[in-house]
Simulated assay, not measured.
Amino acid sequence: TERYVSQFERQISSAPLVCLDGNIPISTINYVCLLAKKHNINVWFEPTDKEKARKPFLSDAWKFLSYSSPNLAELCIMNKTLGISTPDELPNTLDEILKAAAALSRPLLEHLHCLVVTLGPHGVLLCGEHEAGTINLQPRKLKKRKQICALHYPAMTVTPEEILNVSGAGDSLVGALIAGILQGKDTDTCVQMGLLAARMSLSSPHPISPMLTLDSVDPNKIQTQKWQKPTFVKIDQDSGIHF
């Protein structure tokens, strides 16, 4: 509850990154977002599901988030809650999925620093501030307007025989990606850590693999993995998306 969380304002205000998920009451989400505004801290919102994804967007609280990690359906709900038009049906082809995800991310990037759109078997689309040929994932101190873009990272190959569980892969991806951010890793490494963690989750009978460690998702220690180069997508501020 808001009252309970308020006991930890000092710790929250000094944290490099604060994570919320959609299971938390709306009043508590709003309270933490106000703390983010007051103390200039970075907050990551994990939507959890479609209905809970709308919670920060029922007020101006969402404007004080820095990161969020929705899937495409949750991203649609976020936009719809803000009164922004969304597709009647989710696209099926990869090309259309990427276009839709990038277009739906653009309004939220007016205030958010970065969106990590999870695309299941299609990997992840990173949307945020363009910097030196990639996207700046590191927590920001000040909001500033920059060119925004998107990077699509394909998922790692997992055979049907290897999949033991489909629950927890998204949480594993986000958790490992955040770990990379907090370690100051470059963007590619952060995403690769997330993809490795997601694969471990899929191959484990547990939602979060008990074998998950920083070493187990360190791309530099897994030399056999060949990483595909991410696809760059420029998101124009006014007129749409350019591949």
Rank of each mutant, 00 (worst) to 15 (best):
H152Q: 04
V43I: 14
K144H: 12
A53H: 09
P219T: 00
I26G: 10
S216M: 05
L164I: 06
K99E: 03
H122F: 12
L196P: 04
S239C: 07
I241F: 04
L137C: 02
V174F: 04
K229H: 05
Q7G: 06
F45H: 02
M193T: 08
I148L: 00
P160C: 00
D95R: 11
P16W: 10
C149W: 00
S201R: 14
M78S: 01
S59W: 11
Y67Q: 09
D218E: 07
K143S: 13
K37I: 10
T224L: 07
E2Y: 14
G133L: 00
Y31H: 14
G22E: 09
E96G: 06
A179K: 03
P205S: 13
G83A: 04
L173T: 11
G22K: 09
K38F: 01
G83T: 06
Q7E: 06
T213F: 02
N71T: 01
V43D: 07
L65N: 01
S66T: 02
V18A: 09
N165R: 01
V117F: 05
E129W: 11
V166T: 15
A155E: 08
T187E: 08
I12W: 12
L126C: 00
E46L: 10
L151R: 04
E161K: 11
L182S: 02
P205K: 15
N23M: 12
R10S: 14
K229W: 01
T159Q: 06
G168E: 12
T48L: 12
L125V: 01
C127G: 01
T189I: 07
A176C: 02
T93Q: 14
L212A: 00
A179D: 02
V117K: 06
E46R: 03
M78K: 02
Q183A: 14
L126I: 13
V174R: 08
A61N: 05
P87V: 02
V158Q: 00
K52I: 13
V32H: 03
P210I: 01
V233L: 07
T28Q: 15
I208P: 06
S27L: 11
P219I: 00
T81V: 08
S201D: 13
T48K: 11
I178S: 06
E9S: 06
F64R: 05
I208V: 14
I222Q: 06
D188Y: 08
D188R: 05
S172Q: 15
G170D: 10
F243P: 00
L142S: 14
I135A: 01
A103I: 12
L108D: 08
M211H: 09
S239H: 15
V191Y: 12
L164E: 15
T159I: 09
S68H: 04
P207M: 07
H122L: 08
P25Y: 07
A179I: 03
E51I: 15
E96R: 11
E96I: 06
P47M: 03
R199N: 03
I241Q: 03
L115T: 02
L164N: 12
L137K: 03
K37T: 05
D215V: 08
P154Y: 08
S6L: 08
D95M: 09
D171F: 13
P47C: 04
L34C: 09
C114N: 06
E162M: 10
I163Q: 04
E74M: 02
K63A: 07
V18T: 14
D238A: 12
G120A: 15
A101T: 00
L212Q: 01
I84R: 03
S167V: 15
L20V: 13
T86F: 10
H122D: 14
G168D: 09
V124D: 10
